[in-house]
Amino acid sequence: MINRKPLKIAIASGKGGTGKTTLSTNLAAYIAEQQEVVLVDLDVEEPNSGLFFNGELIHEEPNLKMIPQWDESKCTLCGICRKVCNFHAVIQLGPTIVVFPQLCHSCYACSELCPENALPMIPKSTGTLKDFRSGNLHFIESRMDVGEEQAVPAISKTKNYAAGKYGNANFTIYDSPPGTSCPVIEAVKDVDFVILITEPTPFGLHDLRLAVETVRALKKPFGVVINRYGIGNDEVIEYCTEEDIPILAKIANSRKIAGLYSSGKLIYNEVPEVKTALQEILDHCLKMMEGEHK
């Protein structure tokens, strides 16, 4: 493999259940046959890439966020804290200040503006980050605790961990959350290339359009992979042609693939067409990147 800048790819989709994890895990494992690769599961609300690897746990740490803690002995009940909180995470009920950690965005306003220092910030765990190794593959995931609402800080922290520890690896692949909202933006905003995976159905096309608008707004180079090819209709292909979007590969709809996935197995060694598709995707990413950097 030629020497070049490390490549960061996000695998995303508008619609859920179109094959982000299937493609992420198989592409990562395929690359790992030859060289070092980092797979980061950024779907922190429901990470599942880890189901496909039996890695050795290298490191584990809590994901912390800072929240205010009320010190009753210092508080004069002036009410500034609740007035400055944009998220209503701090409210005043008579003689009591109540903090709602899950609503808190760690902006420090209440803490900094409290004249009596009665709301010092303390760390609170919101989930766990895990780092596994399996041969050439580094697998990193974060998992939010039940009841936590904010995926973005966990995603940001997980990316930073991966970049800090394995930033020199030739390939980093992000398995993104579904949709087009803040967590997806956070997952996609600093990558070199985005693979949008979709299914060739009206529903798939509808959400693909939203995903395309999103990555275009972020000015990211991207291409489309059509999964479950053969179902639905030709509208996704027509749309990509009209919009001049490269179709990187098509993965046929197959009961065998669904069966392997459902039993937690990688697919490309059992289904040769998938291996071909992975190589096509990889070639395309590398070619596009070379073009970008020339």
Partner: peptide
């Protein structure tokens, strides 16, 4: 019309 914390804000009012 608040994006966040409508429940706690209304609780404050009810209080």
């Amino acid at each position: 019309n608040e994006a966040h914390g409508a429940g706690t804000a209304t609780s404050q009012r009810i209080f």
